[in-house]
Design a protein around this nucleic acid. Sequence first.
DNA 1: CCAGCGTATGTCACATCTGACATGAAGGCA
DNA 2: TGCCTTCATGTCAGATGTGACATACGCTGG
Lengths: 110, 110
Amino acid sequence: MDKRTRKRLESAGWKVGGTSEFLGLTDEEAAIVELKVGLANAVREQRSRRSMTQEQLGQLLGSSQSRVAKIEAADRSVSIDLMVRSLLRMGLSRKDVASYIAAPGRKRAA
Amino acid sequence: MDKRTRKRLESAGWKVGGTSEFLGLTDEEAAIVELKVGLANAVREQRSRRSMTQEQLGQLLGSSQSRVAKIEAADRSVSIDLMVRSLLRMGLSRKDVASYIAAPGRKRAA
DNA sequence: CCAGCGTATGTCACATCTGACATGAAGGCA
DNA sequence: TGCCTTCATGTCAGATGTGACATACGCTGG
């Protein structure tokens, strides 16, 4: 998890320690946070890859710039559903989404 | 997609054709349905593997028998979040969940 | 210095999801 | 046949997620 990501998460209210659990964060909660971070990074990366602004992506998703920002920040108020729908709308396949979910944190090939 | 699954989906209000799209179902919607069916099957399979009743699983999830039934039926009223949380609560890893999402429909090894 | 662009954050009315309950249907068994 | 277990489906009040808006922050070019 890079510094920037961690900062975003913490300020969003998540309690993050190491890459996994810490005080008051069960294994399951930790797994969900990690999973969401993976998807959040995926969205940011895919958008970036298309040279789109958050505003443009928001439009593509039928949503707003602010919500895209929250998605990419893995904000508490964002569901996995929304993240997945975003990726699919950007043309990714179910398998692509799965690979992002399985991914540890950063880095990715295709 | 087996017959039983298709029946459950259709009665749940989804419009399903082939394994993918049909009338009035965009590619994205189709992908979401398939993804949810994969997770629904995963929950049913994992529960079955543990010889638990829906009632017992409901308790483990802090929920009810009826909601478990809806989860396994990939009901409209069930979010991907809930399905994922269920699988994690049953002890699966992020990677396990990912593999179920990537899976076409039925069959699985481990 | 200060516009302007892209992004981040807080808030809120409205939409969707969720647990719980009631009830029904299918199968097993005495 | 009646009873019991397990799963399916409808409903609803309360919880959570969502789009939109306002506003703030950092950066870059003028």
